[in-house]
């Protein structure tokens, strides 16, 4: 369970990205965060695994307050949270298998991982994750040989290999074409359903967020202006979140 209590974030340049956010996300939810670019979606998401540190308020993950943890404790927190990025963030010159295996590095001592000495069960875990994502046969090709959709699946496999309770996805489909987008979103839905992993995703395309997420959080100028079931979203609510009607590029359309 994730709990935001009065969380604010002000960047050193004075930009207030989050203003007094209060939220609670229960285990197993699929949350879509929507809002204009620059509204604070990414900051909200990244504060959960402390890729960005909040400036005030309290943030609890399973009742542990995370704003004061650092070093080894922080790494232990992060290894239990998977993260997916817009540009996949794979090491392109490394094999798919090794990329996925990096999901296990925080579970083992430095000297073992530096020499690539992972236990057999970790190696199998990596391969099982790839199989789950349907790209087992690509395991030993270089990541840059894969298409965008396949690369995002590798990133998902890397996250799964962490055995996470939660996956954060920062614009996971923004660099994919419409068809792959749907496939990758289906993968997210499947992971959420089959493994009971909580998914929190920033979404540029509102219709996708409404289709896949069970809960929508709308952000405007660093404040939560909507929080409810996807079914409850109406055109008026969207105007409230976006301050205007949706632009063409903000819906995928089908």
């Amino acid at each position: 369970m994730i709990k935001f209590v009065d969380v604010s974030k002000t960047y050193p340049n004075g930009v207030k990205a989050l203003r007094g956010v209060n939220l609670e996300v229960k285990d197993g939810e699929f949350v879509g965060i929507i809002g204009l670019s620059g509204a604070g979606k990414s900051t909200l998401l990244r504060s959960i695994n402390k890729m960005i540190s909040i400036t005030s308020g309290k943030l609890y993950i399973d009742d542990i307050e995370i704003s004061s943890i650092r070093g080894k404790e922080l790494r232990m927190l992060r290894r239990s949270i998977g993260m997916i990025f817009q540009s996949f963030n794979l090491v392109k010159r490394m094999s798919v298998y090794n990329n996925v295996l990096t999901g296990r590095v925080a579970y083992h001592p430095t000297f073992k991982t530096v020499f690539g000495l992972f236990p057999k069960e970790d190696k199998l875990m990596a391969l099982e994750s790839l199989d789950t994502m349907g790209i087992l046969e690509k395991a030993f090709t270089r990541a840059d040989q894969l298409s965008g959709g396949q690369q995002q699946r590798v990133a998902l496999a890397r996250a799964l290999t962490q055995k996470p309770k939660l996956i954060l996805a920062d614009e996971p489909v923004a660099s994919l074409d419409p068809i792959t987008t749907v496939q990758v979103m289906d993968d997210f839905a499947r992971i959420n359903r089959d493994f009971g992993i909580t998914v929190i995703a920033n979404m540029h395309h509102v219709d996708l967020a409404l289709k896949y997420a069970t809960r929508i959080i709308g952000i405007k100028d660093g404040e939560v202006v909507f929080d409810g079931k996807s079914k409850e979203i109406t055109d008026e609510k969207l105007v409230q979140i976006y301050g205007r009607s949706l632009r063409h590029d903000e819906v995928l359309g089908e």
Binding site: N49, F85, F88, N89, V91, T102, V105, T110, V114, R158
Partner: peptide, 28 residues
């Protein structure tokens, strides 16, 4: 490309692990 380092941060890798899995394969 610095983005893999971000991903390694997110999986909880420490500095040595980031060098081994994020930097060396890219610059080798």
């Amino acid at each position: 490309d610095k983005s893999p380092l971000e991903a390694l941060d997110a999986v909880g890798a420490n500095a040595w692990q980031k060098i081994r899995y994020g930097i060396i394969p890219q610059v080798a």
